[in-house]
Simulated assay, not measured.
Amino acid sequence: MPSPQLPRAVFALDPVHLPLLFPPPLMARLRQAAELDPALVVRDFTDPAAAAALAEAEVLITGWGCPHLDAGVLTATPRLRTVLHAAGSVRSLVGDALWERGITVSSAVTGNALPVAEYTLAMILLAGKDTFTHRERFRSTHAYPSPVETAHTGNVGRQVGIIGASRVGRRVLELLRPFDFTVLLHDPYVSAAEAAGLGAQLLSLDDLLSRSDIVSLHAPDIPETYRMLDGERLALIRDGGVLINTSRGALVDPDALADELVSGRLHAVLDVTEPEPLPAGSPLYRLPNVFLTPHIAGSLGNELERLGRIVVEELERLGAGAPLAHEVRHADMARVA
Rank of each mutant, 00 (worst) to 15 (best):
E232P: 01
P7S: 08
D14T: 11
E274M: 09
D14H: 14
P147Y: 01
K129R: 15
F11T: 02
A165F: 02
I244K: 02
R317H: 06
A12D: 06
A325Q: 07
L202P: 00
H326D: 01
P279Q: 13
V311A: 04
H85F: 02
P145W: 12
R171Q: 11
L80R: 03
L74A: 01
S106D: 14
R81K: 15
I103D: 02
P24R: 14
P24V: 13
L176K: 06
G199L: 14
R43Q: 11
V16R: 11
L324N: 08
G197W: 14
P223Q: 14
D255H: 11
E274G: 02
L236N: 07
A51I: 04
A250P: 02
A331H: 07
L125H: 03
G65C: 12
R335E: 08
I237D: 03
A297W: 01
R306G: 02
L278K: 10
P220N: 15
F291K: 04
R137K: 09
A53M: 08
L209K: 00
P220W: 09
L20F: 10
L318W: 01
V311Q: 06
P67Q: 15
H218D: 12
L173A: 08
A52G: 07
V148E: 13
A143P: 08
A53D: 05
A57G: 12
A235R: 13
L60P: 06
I162N: 02
E56W: 08
G111E: 11
G63D: 10
T62K: 00
R317N: 03
A320I: 08
V290C: 13
V73C: 13
A122P: 06
L60F: 13
L208K: 08
L126P: 08
D213C: 01
A192Y: 01
A334V: 11
P15M: 05
Q5Y: 06
I310A: 10
T75W: 10
L185E: 00
S107P: 10
E58L: 12
G298T: 11
L198D: 05
T120Y: 08
T141H: 06
L80C: 10
G231E: 14
S146D: 06
L198S: 09
I124K: 11
G319Y: 04
S89F: 07
T62A: 05
L21M: 10
I296A: 15
A55S: 13
S247C: 11
R31G: 06
I163P: 00
E224M: 13
R135A: 13
S166W: 09
Q5N: 12
V272E: 00
